[in-house]
Amino acid sequence: MPLDTSTYGLALLRVDGRRWNELRRIHAQIRTQAAADGSSYLEMGHTKVMCVVTGPSEPGPRRGAAGGAAGGGGGAGGQSKDAEVVVNIVIAGFSSVDRKRRGRGDKRTLEMQSTLANTLAATLHTHLFPHSQINISLHVLSQDGSLLAALINAATLACVDAGIPMTDYVTACTAGSTSTYAANDEGADPLLDLNHQEEQELPGLTVATLGDSDRVVALVCESRVQISRLEGMLAVGVDGCKQVREILDQVIKAQGQKMILEGTVDKGTGLNDMDLD
């Protein structure tokens, strides 16, 4: 059901009280699953996802039979000199309001799996692990917009936790634009980090960038929008990605400090200047 966001023009506040350039609360944890090689839990507002990374390991016997489409394989096959990134997304039935049952063959999920696999394959140093496979399973516990962005962020964190060498963080967020495609008003504001209601009603895109740069790894826009709006939306999205990167970086550093203090890992030589209070 369409919801009325036309009140935005009056107070410049969005339905959940944010301003145009505010992210929702991001809460992230890594090393949540003791048994996994790498794991993370991420909340962006009410979107909650969990990620478990297994590998790099020897490819299972399943290979060949249902590779590619079913697993959303990215990078090259297991026989080549690059590790294969296999992503599996499970969207819990209770994650959204309408409790829709999504089977394994759901094309939207398959597309997201393939996007994630290709995004990560471009960033992980897969050439260091020939003939192996990196399994990334993601569980969506709650959906409130920006799902793909949350999945990418969670996967990045889990890959860092698994200790897989990568170029830099891949961080993602969404950006939108006030007013619908039909209204050709130039005064439309770009918005950062859309929630479910805004995603339903306003044009928006998901953007994932590499590290601190402006380089876009993934860009997904699924709604009709004037071409002139794209620049503003992209700029806000890329800026949001940098903010997300800072937050994720803090999470990882905090975990690192904790592990050093607990004595789980030795304090490296390069960490002398790091504040461990």
Partner: peptide
């Protein structure tokens, strides 16, 4: 001049500015 969909599903990172140029040529 309405964008109906954009899909850059992973792959090599590309400068945001060149993506905008690509969109203009695409139009």
């Amino acid at each position: 001049g309405e964008i109906c969909q954009i899909a850059k599903l992973g792959g090599v990172p590309v400068e945001a500015v060149s993506l905008l140029q690509c969109t203009n040529v695409a139009l």
